[in-house]
Design a protein around this nucleic acid. Structure first.
Lengths: 145, 145
DNA sequence: TAACAGTCTGTAGTTGATACAGGGTCAAGG
DNA sequence: CCTTGACCCTGTATCAACTACAGACTGTTA
């Protein structure tokens, strides 16, 4: 099949497929006489694997490692487990960071519930909190978050 | 003060400060006779504002907007409120996506609790789930997540 | 005098794609 | 025969927000 059909079947952009090939993630296919890429079912399988990994936030270098395990099934899969555990740790860390961020933003948002002039906007005052000693229009009572 | 001291005071890398100047976020400072950048307290204030926004995940274009409101305090701050609300929405969406991801990764991880050969690794089998019709070593019972 | 820290400009790399520009291929329709 | 349109090709540039050099200069200290 040609690249367009592969793209349709895998729900992956044509440019992205060529990108994966350049990156050495997807095996280079045979070419037709006119130079068009000619893919097999095996390419579709490979590509689906890559997309599935990516949908789980697994980075391309890690996908490369997983692919190498597929190619050599006699190896122990300890490294696979570690890789997934690391990924879980990373994601968990990101979630925690973003939840903190969300709380901070809500607190910030609550400092300006009404539409007023920017000079009186609690948000702007809070964002400028670090600007101590500046001749700004901040209330002394304006608490930073 | 010179760029190194500003970097220390703002806990921001020297290269990042020059980057903000190139991007038009931080006002270009005066220069010493030798060409070194010469910063004032006002620059430190500006930079702290930018870093504070960035620590809240606010993008550089948005920071630019907020800075323009600082420069023109007579304007209504409605746009500021909208900007923060959008930011909250974005962060919330990211949190939800990542929490789903985390659950999926845990489910995936649970398919391989022991160290075994890669060919028997539930993780690899699950990641390859999309590879139906392939002559792989997957159990028919191996549920994809 | 020489080492060393700090600074300068300018450019390239990071991640994972995405978006062209500028051209070639091929089948159907007028 | 010509054209339109869909598809394909390579190669390069762009995105965010920095980060990391290379190669040169300045200034202080031993």
């Amino acid at each position: 099949m040609r690249i367009g059909e592969l793209a349709r079947l895998s729900d992956c952009d044509v440019e992205t497929i060529r990108f994966y090939e350049r990156e050495g993630l997807l095996a280079a296919p045979a070419r037709e006489a006119n130079g068009y890429r000619s893919y097999t079912e095996a390419h579709l399988v490979q590509l689906n694997f890559i997309r599935h990994c990516r949908s789980l936030g697994i980075g391309l270098p890690e996908v490369r490692i997983l692919r190498s395990f597929q190619a050599r099934p006699e190896l122990a899969c300890e490294e696979i487990n570690q890789l997934i555990d690391q990924q879980i740790g990373r994601i968990h860390q990101q979630v925690e960071t973003l939840r903190l961020l969300e709380r901070q933003l809500h607190a910030l948002r609550d400092t300006c519930r009404a539409t007023q002039r920017a000079s009186e906007c609690g948000i702007l005052r809070n964002l400028a909190q670090a600007a101590e000693g500046e001749g700004c229009s901040c209330h002394p009572a304006g608490h930073a978050i």
